[in-house]
Every structure is written in C-alpha cells, then in structure tokens.
Design a protein around this nucleic acid. Structure first.
Length: 462
RNA sequence: GGCGCGAUGACAGAGUGGUUAUGUAGCGGACUGCAACUCCGUCCACGCCGGUUCGAUUCCGACUCGCGCCUCCA
C-alpha cells in the first residue's frame, strides 16, 4: 500500500488515486533565468525517483513539470545580459535539459511553458473577475482578492490578519488590500507583453501554474509537488486561484522536497551559496550525485559537502564492485525478502535511505555468494539491478563506472593496462619489488589494482 | 512575533514501546608474495528534565540548541 505525506494535512496517509491505477502529478519546475543548482537537482531527482518507482509498481503516471519562461527575474536578467527574453530562456532551457539528462532524470511526460498558455491564463483571470475573486485595478493590473477566498492559508497555516499585519509588501494604493497578489501585470515600456481584456500585459507569478495544470491534468488531480520554498506563497496562491476559479479541490495531496543546505544554511540564489549542477558534475559522476540525494529522505534537509559526495562515491563503488564481472541473469529461484522490504520502504512515502539499506544487505549476500561461487550470485545480481534500476540507480556498466574516464592529467586506460602487463611479468619472476613499485606508481595516480585468479583488474579511486 | 521541522553511535543516516538498521571510518581475523577487492567477527547511540508504562531512544509535557517559511529563491 502506497503512503504519501501530504503537506496540507501534515500527515502520511494511504494514497487514493482519482482513477484506479493512475496518478496525475504536477511538479513546479524551473524559472529559467540561470543554470540549475543542486537544489533544483534535488527536486528533479526526487520526483524522478518517485515517478520511476511508481511506474515499476504498475502505476500509470502522468508527470507534468512546467517551465516558467516569463517572469520579473527573467526580464531583468535578459536586460542585464542585453539579450532578448526568448534568447535567455531558450539557452537556459537547453542547459536544464542537459543537466537533467546527465543526472539520469527522465523527461516529464509533459513540459508546458508559461508563454504557451497565455490564453488559459487570461481565461482563468477572467473567471476570477467574473466570480468576484479578482479585480482589475485602474492601471491595467489585475489582482486576486485574497480576503474573498475562505480557504486562504490552509496549506501553510497562515491567517489573513497576521499576513496583513506583517505585510512587508510595499504599500500599493492600487490594491484593495496589501496581501492581494497580482494575476496580470500591465506591460511596461519595452517589456514583452500579450494583449488582454485589461490591456497589454503579462502574467504574474502563480497564475501560470493554475493554467498549465488545468490544461494538462484538469481541475482536480492527484499530486502537486515542488521545492521547499514553494508552499508559501506560490502554492497557497495557486490553490486560491484554481479552487476559486474551478469550484473544486485543486490537488489531492501536496509533496515538497526538503532544502539542500551548505554549512547549515539553505542553498539559495539570494544567499549566493549555491553550486550549479554542471559545476558539481565536473567533479563527480552523475550517479554519485543521484545517490547522494537519495541517501536522505526527500522531505528532510540534506547537507551538501565534499564529504557527503565522497561517501556517495564510495557507496557506489561498493555496488559496482559487487556487480563487476557477474552476468546478471535470473537463473535460479530465490527465497529472500529483499524486494519486499525494498518496495515496502519505497511505498512508505518513498523512504529511499531505508530502501538503499536493503540494497546493501543484498550486496552483502551477493558478495558472499560470489566469493563462494554459489549459483545464486547471478540471480542476486539481477535482483540488485532490478531494484536499483526501479529508482534510477546502477544504470552504468560496472567496469565503465569503476574505471571511469581519465580526467585531465590522469593515465589513460591503455597506459594503465600497459603497466599491468609489465607488473605481471615482474610477478611471474617473483620480482615483487618491481611489482610493488608499479602498483605504488599507479596508486599515486589514484588507480587501485586488484589481483584475482583470473588476472588483475583496476579501478580509479575517488 | 506567527506557522512548521529537526536533535540518533567517530561521521552520514533509517527506524522502533521490550529484539542487528545501513554505509563509511576503527579494531580483530580470513584471503593475498605483500596489498587492494571481498568475507567473518567486533567496539561506539538515541539533546536535557519530568510524566505515562512492568519497560521509552520510541508516547505526552516543559526546556535547550539548530533550521525553514512568513519577501524573490527548488
């Protein structure tokens, strides 16, 4: 049975799909004005793990992740760069797709863009005005009348009076109430704009997600997800917009990933303490980053550090060492509970650390079986691969992963093989001094040798 | 101030009202020419104070500390 923690009810509850066997999920994606950082990676990887796992369990998942490609920050950045908004967003979308692919993150089923849904945005805005939930201010802006929506604040336990009291929003006489937020912004000179019943303008933040989710999944769908800084105000406002306009419950459950921290502080654009995905991938294999992220439950915060990345690297080496040289095939019947435990952990609000612990138990048995040349080894290896693959791990060839790509200044595979042949000759002559000299020489280049009956294999140590 | 989250062994990180998490590191042994990989064994634990209970790291309350949101950020 699948259990999911819902941000709104603050409880883990049994998941009930709208349609038997199917899951409709909308995840807030990127605002494309800069390269993705590890915080973005966490959202991408978390929901990729979730989607892959659900599919492995037979769920038919319709996964939508939007792109917000029109927004204040984008316009500002494009101006700074002296390029058009389209040029900037196109570049950043391409970069995002590259990052995604290198992290083994599967593309969502649908990836709508805000600029492709202006008509839908205008329609919802009009509906909200017609129903009294929004008003056109004299200057061409349209605002949401927050006090009119009864459920406002239900996601994040806010109440309107306190929000108003603490409103740090600049007082704006055009608004009826300082906490009202903008649905449609009148165009400024030289800014990108679209025609609307209220004059030329562009969407505010929040409304695009109401329009895109409605278009892709309907008025009511199963899961809405996103990053840790989205519950307020973004998701709160989405609820207000969509529920008021559509007259029904918006998302049935809300999932939010935890923050990535650096030195106990949230990694964020505003603090400037972020590492971009491409930066990190120069130093670490993509699966190392995936495993690092999956080593902590998706809702908890995770500390980004070199040490954590190295640990993930070592863990992955253990997995691949176990799989190395084994032809993973289901040859024999196994009587074990690894799959049951793994799936139970994942079905319990996607408990990846617990699930991965099961994989290590399996590795242990696999190594033991390999060592004793038991006939169960290939089947255990297959089981390990199947389970790991169900969350998008262990997708590389063990040999390729362990030997890695030679980085700048490192020995090539051919050079290493040549040294191994030299060493083999020395060992055959019992010239252990020479043999050890070669081994130490390679070790200085981070190449570790492993002698077996079948010969010498090697891997690059992190 | 309001609303939330967290505090687990050397580190990372799950979990549980009474039973081994898991990984790395450490220690002892096996394997090895010596190593590495691997295997076997092993040490180290639940912030503080009360309460409930036969029994609490696990439930309840207070406290201390840390973090997030309340403003753009995944």
């Amino acid at each position: 049975m699948l259990q999911i923690y819902d941000t709104l009810t603050k409880q883990k509850t049994a998941f009930k799909p709208l349609v038997e066997g199917q899951i409709s999920m909308y995840v807030c994606g990127m605002t494309v004005y800069d390269y993705c950082h590890i915080g973005h990676a966490r959202v991408m990887v978390s929901f990729d793990v979730i989607t892959r796992f659900l599919r492995s369990q037979g769920w038919k998942v319709n996964y939508v992740r939007n792109i917000t490609d029109v927004d204040d920050k984008i316009i500002k950045r494009a101006n700074e760069n002296q390029e058009s908004m389209q040029q900037l967003t196109q570049r950043m979308i391409e970069a995002m797709h590259e990052d995604e692919a290198s992290l083994f993150v599967l593309p969502p089923d649908q990836e709508p863009r805000a600029t492709g849904h202006i008509q839908g945005i205008i329609e919802i805005t009009q509906t909200l005005i017609d129903k009294g939930y929004a008003y056109a201010a004299g200057n061409g802006d349209v605002y949401y009348r927050v006090a009119k929506f009864e459920g406002y604040g239900k996601l994040t336990n806010k109440n309107i009076d306190e929000l108003r009291a603490g409103a740090r929003v600049a007082v704006n006489e055009i608004k009826e109430n300082p906490i009202d937020f903008v649905l449609w912004k009148a165009a400024k000179e030289g800014e990108v704009s679209w025609p609307s019943p209220w004059g030329d303008g562009r969407p505010g933040w929040h409304i695009e997600c109401s329009a895109m989710s409605k278009h892709c999944l309907g008025d009511n769908f199963d899961i809405h997800g996103g990053g840790p800084d989205l519950p307020f105000p973004h998701h709160e406002n989405e609820i207000a917009q969509s529920e008021a306009a559509n007259g029904c419950t918006f998302a049935n459950s809300w999932m939010h990933a935890g923050a990535v921290r650096v030195n106990s502080e949230k990694m964020s654009k505003s603090l400037g303490n972020f590492f971009t995905i491409r930066e990190v991938l120069k130093k670490y294999n993509a699966e190392v980053v995936r495993l690092f992220l999956a080593s902590v439950h998706y809702r908890s915060y995770i500390d980004y550090s070199e040490q954590s990345l190295k640990e993930a690297q070592v863990k992955l080496e253990r997995f691949y060492q176990a799989l190395r040289g084994i032809n993973a095939t289901a040859e024999v019947e196994l009587q074990n509970d690894y799959s049951g435990k793994f799936n139970a952990a994942m079905n319990d609000d996607f408990n990846t650390p617990k699930a991965i612990a099961v994989l290590f138990e399996l590795v242990n048995e696999l190594n033991s079986a390999s060592r004793q040349k038991l006939p169960t080894a290939p089947t255990l290896a297959k089981q390990l691969l199947d389970l790991a693959n169900s969350i998008g791990l262990l997708q590389q060839d063990p040999e390729a992963f362990l030997q890695g790509e030679a980085k700048e200044g490192e020995l090539s595979a051919q050079q290493i093989e040549a040294f191994i042949i030299e060493r083999k000759a020395a060992r055959a002559n019992k010239d252990f001094a020479e043999s050890d000299r070669i081994r130490d020489l390679l070790l200085e280049q981070s190449v570790v040798l492993k002698d077996t009956r079948e010969g010498t294999s090697w891997f690059r140590e992190s």
